[in-house]
Design a protein around this nucleic acid. Structure first.
Lengths: 294, 294
DNA sequence: TACGATCGTTGAGCCGGATTCAACGACGGG
DNA sequence: CCCGTCGTTGAATCCGGCTCAACGATCGTA
């Protein structure tokens, strides 16, 4: 296998047939060209160029080699160019998705800014559900997802949305008489569980196994979708800490919400497959940050 | 354009999917692999491998690049291999030729030894004439020629045959009464000239323009072939210094030969195009030397 | 014919990047 | 919980890519 500089030197000299011009094109000295060609010829075992101080020409072996190598080198350049375009270029297509329609506005602001900055890159906006959000990222059917943190095993950008947590309880539940509750109350009621497809880390964040003081939290039944989980709450099968947006976006007469005073806010932002960290993705995250963080 | 070590590192890792084995195969440390891959990824602008400390896999961009590059690199290796085979290998076909049948035995001894040493290389023996000897070498229709020195612009091996010079004169010429003559006598008689196709250096060696003492040598007519030149001598149009083999191989009753006492011997050996210095050629020259020089 | 201009060659020497080395962090399994 | 396996990281080292300057060969020109 030849070194890059050997390939470049040989092919350029084969094209120019002149040491001076070859050296100039490659930004080196003629001495370098001479050395490299000589070493190549020693390696091949025969002269590649027939040269006097007046004229340089390819020998038959040299011509054969040049004809063989030129298209291969061009192909390599093209392959690398394509890879760089895929990785560094901000063109082509970018598929972004949201999970829960109430997060769509923030995503659309990001899309607008990104589209303005990169008119050559086509953006598709999709919606995914809880059950297919991770598979969509893993199989590449979407590039970026606006989702709630934590989102295990994915790269994530800065938080774009924050909201306080509230406790969903059945309408008329005794807790509704309080202004706010502490996380400690989770030790006193079964807590509805997220479905198995969500990550352990996510579940620990939303439905902890212990209260701040260390008491175990009784596990209630699990739902397959968020609506199903709220229905379980309405049925009196348990309580569920949720974001306060739920008040507005899931208005149900059979469920009431009580602020949780000592829980950190829920953060949301963009997540994507680590191995899909292309310039497109980085640029979209930057646009989302610029558009949503004042 | 990627460096050779980048190509090798990337493709080997894409094959092994394991830093340790890749490092072992390439005889470097794993740190090196890590550095090179990281630099490549910085250049491409996106991850090429998705790696944890347990598993290494290609990203889509990495797979695309590997699939693109692998056949090109294989093609380059193959092209270089072919060139090395043409330059360094002693196989294929070698065309050797003699000029003047009396030199054939020395050439055939060389052919025999070469064929014994390199049974995989087919040798063809041809005969050329004065007028087409140089063109045959230049256009590649023969690789090596057994010829008299000097042979301008060609590479040559060690002298294989030496012979004393004699002066060809018309039968009954006054010089035939002498045991030997000096080169000085060339100043006293027209000298038959070699044809224009022969090189200036060769003509200076055979038909000098000045005697050793500096007197000019009168130029006689030129012949197109050696027989023609001897005929001019027979016709009394001039004299001609020749090798003593002429006595035996051109026995003519109308030409006599007188030894020249102060001329260096005529040397013959193998000549070939400088740009055709392949291993085949070098090996044939070596065989010829071994077979003919005691 | 001597001179200058143009070109490729050569060998010594310098410098930067290729490579190593050793310490470190991450992850799974017994 | 510790240990073994793996990949990462940054400083140190060293080799080879490259320059530089002198040289030789060749051709046009005064």
């Amino acid at each position: 296998m030849l070194e890059r500089h050997e390939l470049e030197t040989f092919l350029t000299l084969a094209e120019e047939l002149h040491f001076g011009r070859t050296a100039e094109r490659l930004r080196v000295t003629t001495g370098r060209i001479s050395h490299v060609v000589k070493k190549l010829e020693r390696r091949i075992g025969a002269p590649l160029f027939a040269r006097t101080s007046r004229v340089v020409q390819l020998t038959p072996i040299g011509r054969q080699l040049a004809d063989d190598l030129a298209p291969l080198v061009a192909g390599m350049d093209e392959a690398v160019r394509r890879a760089v375009e895929a990785g560094r270029g901000v063109t082509g297509r970018l598929r972004v998705a949201f999970l829960g329609e109430w997060t769509a506005p923030a995503l659309l602001k990001a899309v607008a800014l990104f589209a303005q900055r990169h008119p050559d890159c086509q953006v598709e906006v999709h919606e995914v559900q809880l059950f297919n959000s991770r598979p969509s990222l893993v199989d590449g059917s979407i590039d970026i997802l606006m989702a709630a943190y934590p989102f295990d095993g994915m790269a994530c950008g800065p938080a774009l949305l924050e909201e306080e947590r509230v406790l969903a309880v059945p309408a008329g539940h005794p807790l509704t008489r309080q202004e706010s509750v502490s996380l400690e109350v989770l030790g006193d009621h079964p807590v509805v569980q997220y479905p198995a497809v969500t990550s352990a880390e996510f579940k620990r964040d939303r439905t902890p196994e212990h209260t701040p003081s260390g008491r175990p939290v009784p596990k209630g039944p699990a739902g397959n979708t968020f609506s199903e989980m709220l229905t379980l709450v309405a049925m009196g099968r348990g309580v569920l800490p949720v974001g306060e947006h739920t008040r507005r976006y899931y208005p149900r007469p059979d469920v009431a919400y009580v602020p949780i005073r000592d829980a950190p806010p829920i953060r949301r932002g963009l997540v994507w497959r680590e191995s899909n960290t292309t310039a497109r993705v980085r640029e979209f995250v930057r646009a989302a940050t610029d558009a949503n963080v004042r």
